[in-house]
Structure formats: C-alpha cells, structure tokens
Lab assay of single mutants.
Amino acid sequence: KELVLVLYDYQEKSPREVTVKKGDILTLLNSTNKDWWKVEVDDRQGFIPAAYLKKL
C-alpha cells in the first residue's frame, strides 16, 4: 500500500472529499487522476487535491 503526506490543511467542500491536516500520513487508494487523489482517512474514503499531497 502506498502512503502520502499531507502538505497543507484541507477542508472538504463536498461529500466526496475528506478533511485532512498538514502532516497527516494517509493511505493512497488511487492517483490515476492528476488533479484529485483518492485517500483513506479514519475508515473514510474520499478525494483531496493532488497538489496537497506528496507520495512517500
């Protein structure tokens, strides 16, 4: 499984997104879309802008 580091706080703006904090380490589920990556946060799955994440 691939992990990503959150570079900036992000507040979800729709039900398909998730809220994260800078410094969080998340499981990356899908990065095929270059703009929005799907991650897992506390048993929730959702999207975050790829620019907010860095692969570890």
Rank of each mutant, 00 (worst) to 15 (best):
L53S: 04
L28E: 01
D24V: 08
K21T: 10
K21H: 12
W37K: 01
D24M: 15
K55P: 08
F47L: 08
E40M: 11
N30E: 15
L7Y: 02
N30G: 07
V4C: 11
V18L: 15
K22W: 03
K13A: 12
F47S: 03
K21I: 07
E17Q: 11
G46C: 08
I25L: 07
Q45R: 11
Y8A: 14
L56I: 14
V39L: 04
D42Y: 11
P49W: 04
F47E: 04
P15E: 12
V41R: 12
E40F: 07
Y10K: 01
D43P: 03
V39T: 01
N33M: 10
D24L: 09
L3R: 11
W37F: 05
E17I: 03
E17L: 05
Q11G: 07
V41P: 01
P15S: 13
L3T: 08
K34F: 09
R16D: 12
L29R: 04
D42F: 15
I25A: 02
Y10E: 00
K21M: 09
K55A: 07
W36H: 04
D9G: 06
V20C: 09
E40Q: 15
V18W: 07
L3P: 04
F47P: 00
Y52G: 07
K1H: 11
A50W: 02
V4L: 04
K38Q: 14
L29T: 06
T19H: 04
V39I: 10
K55H: 08
L3N: 06
K13H: 09
K34D: 10
V20W: 05
S31K: 07
D35P: 03
E12F: 12
Q45D: 08
D9T: 06
K55Q: 07
L28A: 03
K22F: 05
V20S: 03
D9E: 05
L56S: 03
Q11L: 14
R16N: 14
I25G: 00
V20Y: 05
D43M: 10
R44K: 13
G46A: 09
K55G: 04
E2S: 13
T19C: 05
L28K: 01
L29S: 03
L26F: 04
R16H: 13
L28N: 01
Q45H: 10
K54E: 08
T27L: 14
V41E: 02
D43S: 13
G46V: 14
L5S: 04
K38R: 10
L28Y: 02
K13Y: 05
G23C: 08
T32H: 13
A50T: 06
V6M: 02
L3S: 07
E2V: 14
E2Y: 10
P15M: 08
Y10H: 04
W37S: 02
K1R: 13
K22P: 02
L29V: 13
L56N: 03
L5D: 01
L28Q: 00
K13S: 11
E12R: 14
E17Y: 05
A50Q: 06
D42N: 14
R16A: 13
E40G: 08
T19Y: 04
V6N: 00
D35W: 15
V20M: 02
S14P: 06
G23Y: 05
K38W: 12
W36Y: 10
T19W: 04
T27D: 06
T19L: 02
D9P: 07
L29Q: 03
S14K: 08
K22Y: 05
N30S: 15
L56G: 02
L29E: 03
V4K: 00
S31W: 11
I48L: 13
Q45S: 14
R16K: 13
L3A: 06
D43C: 13
K21D: 03
K54F: 13
A50V: 07
V6S: 02
A51W: 13
S31M: 08
L56A: 04
Y10G: 00
E2R: 12
W36G: 02
L5A: 05
T27V: 15
V41G: 07
V6Q: 00
T27R: 14
Q45L: 07
D24S: 13
T32K: 13
K54L: 15
L29F: 04
L53C: 15
K54I: 12
P15G: 09
L26Q: 02
K13I: 07
N30C: 11
K34Q: 12
S14M: 08
W37H: 03
I48H: 00
I25N: 02
D35M: 15
E40W: 09
F47K: 02
L26N: 01
V18D: 00
G46T: 07
K38S: 09
K55W: 07
K55T: 07
R16Q: 14
V20L: 03
D43G: 15
E2F: 10
V41Y: 09
P49H: 04
T32M: 12
K34I: 10
L5M: 11
K55L: 14
L53H: 00
E2H: 12
V6A: 07
K54H: 11
L26W: 06
E12P: 10
D42W: 11
I25W: 04
R44L: 06
T19A: 05
D35N: 14
G46Y: 10
G23E: 02
V41W: 07
V39S: 00
E12K: 14
L5P: 00
D9R: 03
T27K: 13
T27H: 13
W36T: 03
S14T: 12
R16M: 13
I48R: 01
L29N: 02
K22C: 08
L53D: 00
D9S: 10
V6L: 02
V20G: 05
T19P: 02
G46F: 14
I48S: 03
S31C: 11
Y10M: 01
G46I: 11
L5N: 02
N33F: 09
E40P: 00
Q11E: 14
D43A: 12
W36C: 08
G23K: 02
Q45E: 13
A50C: 08
Q45G: 06
K38M: 15
F47N: 04
Y8G: 07
Y52L: 09
Q11S: 12
K54P: 00
N30H: 07
N33G: 09
P15Y: 08
K21W: 14
Y10P: 01
V4W: 06
P49G: 02
V18C: 08
E2P: 12
L56K: 03
V18I: 14
W37T: 02
I48M: 14
E12S: 15
F47D: 04
W36L: 05
Y52T: 07
K13R: 14
L5F: 07
K34A: 14
Y10V: 01
L7W: 02
V6E: 00
I48V: 15
K1E: 09
D24A: 13
V41M: 09
V39H: 00
K22S: 08
D42V: 12
T19M: 04
K55F: 07
P15N: 11
W37R: 01
L3I: 08
L53K: 00
W37I: 02
A51R: 15
D24N: 08
L56W: 09
L5W: 06
L53Y: 01
N33Y: 09
Y8K: 15
K21Q: 11
T27E: 10
T27I: 15
S31F: 07
T32C: 13
K1W: 13
N30R: 07
Q11I: 14
V41K: 15
T27G: 08
Q45I: 14
L53M: 05
D43R: 11
V39Q: 00
W37V: 02
V39F: 01
S31Q: 08
K1F: 14
I48W: 01
I48C: 13
Y52M: 08
K54C: 15
D43L: 10
E40Y: 07
D43N: 14
Y10Q: 01
Q11W: 14
S14A: 09
G46D: 02
K13F: 06
D42G: 15
V39Y: 01
Y8T: 08
Q11F: 15
E40A: 10
T32P: 04
R16I: 12
L7N: 02
V4F: 04
V18F: 10
I25T: 06
L29H: 05
N30L: 10
D42E: 11
L56T: 06
V4Q: 00
L26S: 01
D43Y: 12
G23I: 00
D9Q: 04
I48E: 00
